[in-house]
Design a protein around this nucleic acid. Structure first.
Length: 204
DNA sequence: TGAATGATTTACT
DNA sequence: GTAAATCATTCAA
């Protein structure tokens, strides 16, 4: 299969459209250590400045959120909890701080490399079933913040169509009524979709 | 300059 | 189920 980056026009659309369209596409990262790729199975839309859960809410433009305000088709990567990275796709128009958080991926290529980076066996869903986990498996960190996803070693490629379901977002209940909005999209019947927090994640 | 905290994960009781 | 890990960013002073 040819792994060519999706065009910028894929990202230059409303954030909710991109969040839904991203399900089923491939996420690819080529590094010196090898290539890893997987199917995107879970996303969430963050629509600052009116979205209280978004870092860009209220139009706050800081050093951290700068890339969220940049042109579409670039990455927004940030670091939380002192240990984890989160990977986002910048969408919409330049100056519009909207982004799509990639929350889970189904591993397809480079499973052994992912397993080595994660320190878990390659056949476990915990390899990539969470935003922090997939960043570790794909070796995505702040180095990639602001990176162009249309030209480089980290990009989305066209994948197969996949049935999509939607729900409220996870982990941002404080966002009040906005959290009621079904801005989380996930692939139906895919075991790599993350489970809501609080529930113990058991291995098959 | 200093204190609080988070779009989470993991281990432990 | 609950708590610890762990630090860049943010906001207050």
């Amino acid at each position: 299969m040819d792994l060519e980056p999706l065009p910028r026009s894929f990202y230059a659309r409303p954030v909710l459209v991109v969040a839904r369209a991203a399900i089923g596409q491939w996420l690819v990262h080529r590094t010196r250590a090898g290539t890893v790729a997987g199917r995107i199975v879970e996303t969430e839309a963050y629509r600052g400045p009116e979205d209280r859960a978004a870092h860009s809410h209220g139009g706050r433009r800081t050093a951290r959120t700068a890339s969220m305000f940049g042109p579409p088709g670039h990455a927004y990567v940030f670091f939380v909890y002192g240990l984890h990275h989160h990977f986002n796709l910048v969408t919409g128009a330049e100056g519009e701080p909207h982004a799509v958080l990639v929350r889970a991926v189904e591993p397809l290529l480079g499973l052994e490399l992912m397993a080595a980076r994660r320190g878990v066996p390659a056949d476990r869903v915990t390899l990539t079933n969470g935003p922090g986990k997939l960043c570790q498996a794909f070796a995505i960190d702040r180095e990639h913040d602001g990176r162009d996803l249309c030209a480089g070693d980290l990009f989305l490629a066209a994948g197969a169509r996949w049935p999509v379901e939607r729900s409220a977002r996870i982990g941002v209940q404080y966002a009040g009524s906005w959290a009621e909005r079904p801005w989380r999209f996930f692939a139906r019947a895919n075991r790599y979709v993350s489970r809501p927090r609080g529930g113990t994640l058991r291995q098959p």
